[in-house]
């Protein structure tokens, strides 16, 4: 699904990703763990195409296309979804309006028929209910006044409605209480299918108990220094990153 090859990227002229390679096939769940400042969020932003994250080398091929040549909204329409570590508040724009505009913009770009009001409401209601987000909150401004956990649930509501091919979830589990973690994990698991893939960025083993990954990678100083199965996360839980050479 996605082939990241020897990716180098800088922020403000400072190299953050230093030759990162990673291939994710359809149907797989990968987890990336790594110390603070290792470049995990930077990787997610580079994949989503955020301005200011300059690619200085390497390539990213997504479903056969050059991902790095595409604008952020084109990447979204092609099927990339980024669940943000810190979801953004947008005063004055309602969640429902935002999501409907996003869904139809994506469909439009893919040459598909836009969702009618009724069709969209059905999707949004089902997603909010499945993720335990009161529907009232869908009418409020995007993330404004939402608690940390509610923002993360809202990201997952968006994911459920937009149905991406590749979900990159940056610390979606951070700030969730134990029940919310289960609800959000169920939401991620529901999206698992042979033609989708997920990249989980997390600091905690607990998420990986619910969403069992096929591969776990350790990212240190902008590169993947180790790859293993779910047992690697358990090893990290015991020994930390000190034993991992950069």
């Amino acid at each position: 699904m996605i082939i990241i090859d020897n990716l180098h990227a800088s922020v403000d002229g400072k190299p953050i990703l230093n030759g990162l390679s990673l291939t994710i096939n359809a149907g797989e769940v990968h987890a990336i763990m790594g110390p603070n400042g290792a470049g995990k969020s930077t990787l997610s932003y580079v994949l989503a195409g955020r301005a200011g994250y300059e690619v200085t080398g390497g390539s990213v091929t997504f479903l056969g296309q050059d991902l790095l040549a595409m604008a952020p909204h084109e990447r979204a329409a092609a099927g990339v979804f980024l669940g943000l570590q810190y979801p953004v508040e947008i005063p004055g724009v309602s969640n429902l309006m935002f999501l409907r505009t996003a869904l139809n913009a994506q469909r439009h770009l893919r040459g598909e028929a836009e969702a009618s009001g009724a069709e969209f409401m059905k999707l949004a209601k089902a997603a909010a209910e499945a993720l335990g987000l009161p529907f009232e909150m869908m009418k409020r401004s995007v993330n404004q006044g939402f608690s940390g956990g509610e923002k993360k649930r809202n990201e997952m509501v968006q994911m459920a409605v937009l149905e991406p091919k590749l979900a990159v979830l940056d610390e979606t589990d951070s700030g969730l209480d134990i029940d919310a973690l289960r609800v959000v994990s169920d939401g991620i698991n529901r999206m698992r299918s042979p033609d989708r893939a997920t990249l989980l960025i997390t600091h905690y083993q607990r998420l990986l108990d619910y969403v069992v990954p096929d591969f776990v990678h350790v990212l240190v100083a902008g590169r993947i220094v180790r790859t293993g199965g779910p047992e690697l996360a358990q090893e990290l839980e015991r020994g930390g990153y000190v034993s991992m050479a950069a």
Partner: peptide, 19 residues
């Protein structure tokens, strides 16, 4: 906020107009 909207599929002009 612009990046957030674009990352969900809004073309830049639509995102600017919405904000």
């Amino acid at each position: 906020a612009l990046f957030y909207l674009e990352s969900r599929g809004l073309p830049p002009a639509t995102a600017r107009a919405l904000l």
